[in-house]
């Protein structure tokens, strides 16, 4: 939605520049901060609708900035990371980051993520009806159709699907899913999750070897309805 404000916290001027130009071209208002401390201050002053946070900052660790931010700031935060740090990504997501994007990335990819997090943040009243590609889920009637044909799910499969449907486009870490579906204390039993995800894909994907609806974020978790 045009007019929404975004704060970029990154120490690299070149990166800030293209982010600013790219985002402004889509009608967003952009503020910039070149350090963690500056970023926190600007966040208080400008109250942006979303934050783009780089993890390598000169004055403090990006994860630290995120934790401080999350003490009071509820709006979405997208983290800019490098590929090597899956563990960091999981930690950041568990710490309250809404999404991440891996460097180097294209502007289109970033804009898609940004639109998705802002849409979720606007708190659209939960639609009982969810349609994505050939999948259609009616949460009120508890019916699922694929290509217009009804499909049956086991209760646990349906719970898992419901969790994904409620978080479209969002990365859910394995830990978050396990806790939600199997309850606390089961987070390390990822083999259950793998089995149910595989079962779910067989029912909703056209080609389960090339999933398009329920995609894996390597080493992190799953993303449902990615775009």
């Amino acid at each position: 939605m045009p007019g929404e404000t975004i704060l970029i916290i990154d120490d690299e001027e070149q990166i800030r520049r293209f982010l600013k130009i790219g985002l402004e071209s889509q009608g967003y208002l952009v503020h910039e901060a070149d350090s963690g401390g500056d970023g926190l201050t600007q966040c208080v002053m400008k109250r942006p609708d979303a934050v783009l946070l780089d993890l390598n900052l000169p004055d403090m660790d990006g994860a630290e900035v995120l934790k401080k931010l999350r003490e009071w700031y509820r709006s979405p935060v997208i983290v800019l990371t490098v590929r090597e740090s899956e563990r960091d990504k999981v930690e950041l997501l568990d710490c309250g980051a809404d999404d991440y994007i891996t460097k180097p990335f294209g502007m289109e990819e970033l804009l898609a993520r940004m639109r998705a997090v802002l849409r979720r943040a606007r708190h659209d009243p939960e639609e009982p009806q969810f349609d994505y590609r050939h999948l259609s889920v009616d949460l009120a009637k508890r019916t699922v159709t694929v290509n217009g044909l009804p499909v049956k799910f086991s209760p646990l499969e349906y719970d898992l699907l419901k969790l994904f449907v409620r978080n479209p486009g969002k990365v859910l870490t394995q830990k978050q899913i396990m806790r939600e579906i199997w309850g606390p204390g089961m987070e390390s039993e990822t083999s259950y999750l793998r089995v149910y995800v595989a079962a779910l894909r067989k029912k909703i994907e056209e080609d389960p070897s090339r999933p398009k609806i329920l995609v894996t974020e390597p080493g992190v978790g799953y993303r449902f309805a990615p775009d």
Binding site: E12, Q14, I15, R17, F18, L19, I21, G22, S25, K103, P104, F105, G106, M107, E108, L110
Partner: peptide
């Protein structure tokens, strides 16, 4: 720098 190049070009 790669991010800056790719980001700028893609923008």
């Amino acid at each position: 720098p790669l991010s800056a190049i790719k980001g700028s070009v893609s923008t």
